[in-house]
Amino acid sequence: MKIVLAQPRGFCAGVVRAIEIVERALEKYGPPVYVRHEIVHNRHVVESLKAKGARFIEELREAPPGALTIFSAHGVSRKVEDEARLMALPTIDATCPLVTKVHNESRRYVAQGRILVVIGHAGHPEIEGTLGQIEGKAHLVQNEQDVDGLAIAPDAPVAYVTQTTLSVDDTRGVIAALNRRFSDIQGPETRNICYATQHRQTAVRELARVADVIVVVGARNSSNSTRLREIGEQAGLPSYLVADGGEIDPQWFRGVNVVGVTAGASAPEVLVDDVVEALKRIAPSDVSVLDGPEESVSFRLPAELAL
Rank of each mutant, 00 (worst) to 15 (best):
D273F: 02
E20T: 13
D82F: 08
L166S: 07
A88V: 03
Q133F: 12
L301H: 04
G245P: 08
G113C: 10
I57C: 10
L301S: 01
R181C: 00
H124C: 14
A88D: 04
L237D: 13
A94P: 14
G149R: 11
R205C: 01
A153I: 01
L237F: 13
G14Q: 09
I127K: 10
E81G: 05
F253V: 14
I193A: 07
V99D: 03
P154D: 00
D244H: 05
D244P: 00
I231T: 11
N42G: 07
A156L: 01
N224S: 04
R78F: 01
V168K: 00
V99M: 06
V259C: 15
A306W: 02
V215A: 14
L305E: 10
A111S: 15
R108Q: 11
G132S: 04
V168N: 00
S266K: 04
A159P: 03
S285A: 14
I92N: 09
G236S: 08
E233Y: 09
A278T: 06
K2P: 00
D274M: 05
S288F: 00
A25R: 13
I193M: 02
T165I: 08
T202P: 02
I185M: 11
A211C: 08
D93L: 12
Y195G: 13
R9Y: 12
D291K: 03
V272K: 02
H37Q: 12
T197W: 02
V35S: 09
L131M: 15
N224H: 06
L60F: 10
G255K: 04
G232P: 09
P97E: 00
I127S: 09
V45D: 03
E135S: 06
L116W: 12
D148W: 15
A63L: 05
Y160E: 10
A283Q: 15
G236W: 05
L166K: 03
A94E: 09
G260V: 00
A283T: 14
P8F: 00
V16I: 09
S223N: 15
D82K: 10
I231D: 07
P125L: 01
S296W: 13
A138P: 01
D155E: 15
H103K: 02
H41A: 08
D273Q: 14
P65I: 00
S225G: 09
I57K: 11
V118S: 08
R108G: 05
A138R: 12
T226L: 07
A278F: 02
T164M: 04
R17Y: 14
